[in-house]
Simulated scan of single mutants.
Amino acid sequence: MSDALLSLENIRTDIAQYHILKGVSFSVPRGQVTMLLGRNGVGKTTSLRTIMGLWQAKEGTLTFDGADITGAPISARARAGIGFVPEDMGIFGDLSVEENMVLAATNGMPDPARLEWLFSAFPALRTFWKSQAGALSGGQKQMLSIARAMIEDRKLYLIDEPTKGLAPAIISTMVGALRTLKQQGATVLMVEQNFSVAKALGDQAVVMDDGVVVWTGAMAELAESSALQERLMGLSMEAH
Results as ranks from 00 to 15, higher is better:
Ala105Lys: 10
Leu222Pro: 11
Thr63His: 09
Ala4Arg: 02
Leu6Lys: 00
Ser196Lys: 14
Gly134Arg: 10
Asn100Asp: 14
Ala223Trp: 04
Val85His: 00
Thr70Ile: 08
Ile15Cys: 03
Val97Pro: 10
Tyr157Trp: 15
Arg179Glu: 10
Ala16Trp: 08
Tyr18Asp: 06
Arg126Cys: 06
Ala177Ser: 12
Gly165Asp: 04
Ile91Asp: 02
Glu98Trp: 12
Phe26Arg: 00
Ala198Met: 07
Gln140Arg: 15
Gln142Thr: 11
Gln32Gly: 02
Asn100Cys: 11
Thr216His: 07
Asp209Leu: 12
Thr127Met: 13
Phe128Trp: 15
Glu238Tyr: 13
Ala80Trp: 00
Arg30Leu: 05
Gly138Met: 06
Gly176Leu: 05
Pro162Cys: 07
Gln184Gly: 13
Gly176Cys: 02
Met174Ile: 15
Gln184Ser: 12
Ala133Thr: 07
Pro112Gln: 10
Ala220Glu: 11
Leu232Ala: 09
Ile82Gln: 01
Gly165Trp: 13
Leu178His: 04
Leu136His: 11
Gly60Pro: 06
Leu5Glu: 00
Lys44Pro: 08
Ile82Thr: 04
Leu54Arg: 05
Ile170Val: 15
Thr106Ser: 10
Leu54Pro: 14
Met233Leu: 14
Thr106Ala: 14
Ile91Glu: 01
Ala218Pro: 04
Ile146His: 03
Ala4Phe: 01
Ile74Val: 15
Thr106Lys: 15
Leu235Val: 15
Met52His: 03
Leu118His: 04
Val102Pro: 09
Gly134Ala: 06
Val212Leu: 09
Ala149Leu: 07
Thr50Asp: 01
